[in-house]
Nucleic acid binder design. Structure first.
Lengths: 165, 165
DNA sequence: TTGGAATGTCAACAACGCTGACATAACCTG
DNA sequence: CAGGTTATGTCAGCGTTGTTGACATTCCAA
């Protein structure tokens, strides 16, 4: 089935078996990665979509809806449903743009920042522990592989500076 | 906000900023990671839950429903819905246990194996490219961090041999 | 024989993706 | 200014996949 290359010792990390281990590791790790925020979110009646919106609004305050759409890779209907509840609940404010009045610039309110901090601290706690356990060289490798795994668009956005907010 | 430790050069990889980059890398990478199988699945009217079931049945043929439940971490109702469609569509067979006739042992049919191969090849292709681009040392670090990020239960199961099938 | 474990099933619900359609306002170009 | 495009919002409907709760069946084990 696979394209093994017996005889070349340096490529043993590319065997199907190693790749299968990597696939399962991604699956289990992602579950751990989201587990702690999920508890906080469920407590307040939110889901992961809210977490993602809050995260990226915090990261790039004043970002437009369209920009957020591109980052999150969902439809505007899907994002709008989430944003509407966040605005209704007073976690996010949307201000009409000055240069282009069609745009809405999104900001976290103080309450929104509180939630972001709670989610962020929980998630960073898990990641920090993993980083500490694995050490700086492992972390560098971790980041390298993750970046190579992204879609090219996402990677460009990821590497690029904050955004055109 | 965070617990930075200025003055200790060796801990710079634990700054909140570095952790935030890691969090976003996980988010974007996981999206890339699932993108290719998602296309195949959508084409056949399945979702990620079907992928996961097919993957782990292939990995551990003859596994019981309860064991699969523990691995996937979902409710039996949720898994059952997925398994039912897979059995109906002739991708999975469930055989009554011989030692304990209450248990159902799950196997892929030839058709099921075909789907597993298609999904697996797509996903391995993406991961292989990332591994190749990053190199063996990076891959080792990648795996280390992922394993440290899992829940302890999952990690034990992950490291342990195949299962009690 | 009886308790409990393993499994299956029905119903209802929620989160969060999707498509399609439509409305409004604002911008931009000819 | 008119017409086209862009940005956003909203309604309606649908599908996957997770959840709880309740209940039935089968069967092992004490």
């Amino acid at each position: 089935m696979g394209e093994q290359r017996p005889g070349n010792e340096s490529l043993l990390f590319l065997t199907d078996e190693q790749l299968r281990r990597g696939i399962e590791a991604m699956f289990f790790a992602y579950r751990g990665f989201t587990a702690d925020p999920d508890i906080i979110l469920a407590d307040r009646g939110y889901g992961r979509a809210h977490h993602r919106a809050v995260h990226f609004i915090n990261r790039t305050p004043g970002t437009s809806v369209n920009n957020l759409l591109a980052i999150l890779g969902v439809t505007k209907q899907s994002l709008n449903r989430v944003l509407r509840t966040l605005v209704e609940d007073g976690l996010v404010t949307s201000k009409i743009g000055t240069r282009d009045r069609r745009e809405r610039h999104l900001f976290l309110t103080d309450t929104g920042k509180q939630l972001e901090q709670a989610l962020s601290q929980a998630q960073r706690g898990r990641l920090r522990a993993a980083y500490r356990a694995a050490g700086p060289e492992a972390v560098a490798g971790f980041r390298q592989v993750l970046e190579a795994m992204m879609d090219p668009d996402q990677h460009r956005r990821f590497v690029a500076p904050g955004g055109r907010a």
